[in-house]
Nucleic acid binder design. Structure first.
Lengths: 293, 293
DNA sequence: CGATCTTACGGGATTCGTAAACATA
DNA sequence: TATGTTTACGAATCCCGTAAGATCG
């Protein structure tokens, strides 16, 4: 038998209104069509559900037995449908993403705030991990998508640029370089630079940059967290190279742009090839692009 | 959207086999038809349920969320269908009937026994009440049908004869009349007869019979229960007129047929006009007819 | 290049609505 | 007799299957 749900709806409509005619208009159906549907349902179940007469329509024992369970069935179905629609309409949902620590403490928080304001029903789970771990998590499906630099091994991963982060020199306000707007990368050769942890993508990028130009990178202090690095600089313990988005906006540090094309680094969405995003993840990606672009 | 159940079945089949092709053969459907059904379901719910690729079909988050509830939904539906089919197949059910006390203690028990052997899953609720109460209970729908004499007020009630009960004279074995096979009704005029209660249909019938013929009915002892009446007769305290089905088969009482057409009384099914019988009640009525006819 | 899912389109079945017949109070 | 349900039948719709197209490994 086909179209069982419609048949059950028809039966319940008749049971509620105790009339084929009323139920028919309620269902936007002709009385004859309704009659046929009830007949089919009865044939399917093997029992007569309704006691018909022109003056009165009433339920048989079998009809009374089935009325409750059928109502519950339609309720359950509605819950499934509405639940999915809520998901689609972002009234509810979960989006998990893995992002570089530099982004988590820099550009991401304001975006996250805006997203949560716009979609309060959607839970965002943010994991701050190093670049290669992002790739792994995306590949394994542990997160909906990643946010970081382009993966080295592109197997099974897609990359889509959403923003360009730029390495800047951060110095204390009273530092000799503080008054300059730009500075050549070569000028930093031999200067002690406060660096982030060895597995961080920023550290990797800085080392790569100096190596490319054949410049000597002189490590100064070293700290795992960017905020620690910033604090060290603020205390006058040296200068550092960090993404410009890391600026905490407190005004006691000065950003000096590096005169070198290589300081740009592309940050993008890392997704599994062949896998679409959930509605919530799709929307988060959209908010991301809107916020940056 | 139409035919939702089929769509859900299709989705679950794909989810289980992780393949459109395998699910298609399982559903006796062409792959293209299956594709369309999944698409319709996804459009209906507003979410994509499956992540398709030629090599691998997997569930999206929404698909995983819906899989369990949808399986439960189909299970509930199956329960409804199977429950109704059980009812129809008499693997289960209830039949309630109201019958005259004379029938309940006479012709009915062996029939009831046979029915319960044949349909052990069907519960029979037997009410022994006087004739007019039977009519009322049938009219109110308190019982599926009644078993008794034709109702005086036929409004809303149908009557269908299933057996003819005959009033017989019961006397002790050593009674002077015990050797006779038949006896004219007039021979009983003036003889003390042990009678049942004043509101019983048998009593009513006996009184009516004597009145019709202008004979004098001499009441002897009186008891409410037929079994009591029989015991009184057995003790040699008199004779009685009772339905021949009341014979308990103990051999210590002798039945003498009355030579009078009026001793036949039609016992039949009393049903509500315009109301069909439940499968269980229908079958019980059938067993009844088979046992008697 | 092979296996698999998707799109396009024609044939067939199902279902709907209109109108007439039927039944009940 | 009037209201409401059922049956009959023509018309529209929907669905399925075949075949060609697209995609990923």
């Amino acid at each position: 038998m086909k179209n069982s749900i419609q048949h059950i709806r028809a039966f319940l409509a008749v049971a509620n209104s105790a009339s084929f005619a009323k139920a028919a208009v309620e269902l936007n159906l002709s009385p004859s069509a309704l009659t046929v549907q009830i007949q089919q349902l009865e044939e399917w179940l093997g029992v007569t559900l309704l006691e018909r007469s022109p003056r009165q329509v009433s339920l048989t024992a079998a009809g009374q037995n089935n009325r409750g369970p059928m109502e519950k069935l339609l309720l359950d179905l509605d819950n499934i449908v509405n639940g999915s629609r809520d998901l689609a309409a972002l009234r509810r949902g979960v989006v998990t993403l893995a992002a570089l620590p530099s982004l988590c403490s820099g550009a991401l928080p304001p975006i996250l705030k805006r997203f949560r304001e716009q979609f309060p029903g959607v839970e965002v789970r943010l994991r701050d991990v190093v670049a290669q771990r992002i790739d792994a998590m995306v590949r394994e499906g542990e997160v909906d998508f990643g946010l970081g630099v382009r993966a080295r091994t592109r197997h099974g991963l897609d990359f889509q640029v959403v923003m360009v982060d730029r390495l800047s020199l951060f110095v204390p306000k009273n530092h000799p370089l503080a008054k300059r707007l730009t500075i050549p990368l070569a000028a930093l050769a031999g200067e002690p630079i406060i660096l982030t942890g060895r597995d961080s993508s920023v550290r990797e990028r800085v080392e790569q940059l100096f190596a490319q130009e054949g410049l000597a990178l002189t490590p100064g202090l070293e700290a795992n967290y960017m905020s620690t690095v910033m604090a060290l600089v603020r205390q006058g313990l040296g200068m550092t190279l960090l993404p410009e988005s890391a600026d905490e906006g407190r005004g006691d540090l000065v950003q000096v742009q590096i005169e070198h094309a290589g300081v740009n680094r592309e940050i993008g969405l890392i997704t599994r090839t062949g896998f679409g995003l959930s509605p919530a993840a799709e929307q988060f990606a959209g908010t991301l692009r809107a916020a940056i672009g």
